[in-house]
Design a protein around this nucleic acid. Sequence first.
DNA 1: GTCTATAGTAGGATAGAC
DNA 2: GTCTATCCTACTATAGAC
Lengths: 176, 176
Amino acid sequence: MNQALVFYHYGSVDDLLAAACRASTVERIGHWSARLARAGSLRELLAVGRALHEQERELGNVSFLAQMLAGAQTDARLAAPTADALQLWVDEIEAVLGRLLAGSPFAEIADVPGLARAVSAAFIGLELYDGVDRAAAEQAMSALDQLAVLIEIVDDLGPIARRALQAKVNRAIRRD
Amino acid sequence: MNQALVFYHYGSVDDLLAAACRASTVERIGHWSARLARAGSLRELLAVGRALHEQERELGNVSFLAQMLAGAQTDARLAAPTADALQLWVDEIEAVLGRLLAGSPFAEIADVPGLARAVSAAFIGLELYDGVDRAAAEQAMSALDQLAVLIEIVDDLGPIARRALQAKVNRAIRRD
DNA sequence: GTCTATAGTAGGATAGAC
DNA sequence: GTCTATCCTACTATAGAC
């Protein structure tokens, strides 16, 4: 391909990046959505996240995302397509979390759309952290894995403890 | 200042960035460590994080961090100083979390150093997300705030529920 | 639609005067 | 230590032939 064709087809480099960002995201989500839909627990979701990160990093998509995020901080023309791409991922995560947290006190007190955005942002942070300090990112991932165990334990409390927890949750909700 | 002086004093642009990264991080941590040390709960820690993000964003430090992270993904000369700077923040967070989670089942099942790295990475992700989609990042922050309420509720369970939880935690630990 | 050529700009880096 | 001048390279973008 020729460098001048960028401007014939896309008008500017920014517009090319926007198109690449959109197309790549749609393609990658198509590649992962089935696996995300198959995750049956938070720990399984984390495992899919691990595999996803590994592969996207090798494809260079993590570096690309990092560059888009960095550019987007000071350039609205990059921020808009980046936000759109992230929204596509957030929609996926929201669907998975909504399914996994159905009936859980976590879903009752914290809204799932907000959680999906928080989880997505946290995952992005972990991906970038991994490129900077792999050992530290791995340590963080392990801690999240252990935390997921605890969340599932809380979700799986017996009726007495569950009622006590629910009562406290209700009081806290009223207090806010 | 003159452009050529960069190379006289620092040798290369990368080395200048490394020095700036280090100096700036030390200075900013000096500015925030007292407030972090004063946080008495996870929700207060989140509130400090909100204020910190707001101010560092206005100072341009979030954009700087984003650029360092993006560059570090493909350049080890940027990765090393970035990792060092993040480690300084992680040390701060580790101290705060160690204090706040002392005696909590969260600290017993997930190691605090790993959690500190996960929290730091998540915070970085939120900062970058905020530069791309402010409303979404705000929604994520609110969800985390509500989640912190739930964590404090679990931490504050009565003796019966607490014992049931602890027993399940112990079983889960042995299972791993 | 695709190519070559080219303009314009910016950034990293060195040489050498002071 | 600081400056000017300069080189080199890379990148964005346009003009115009085919």
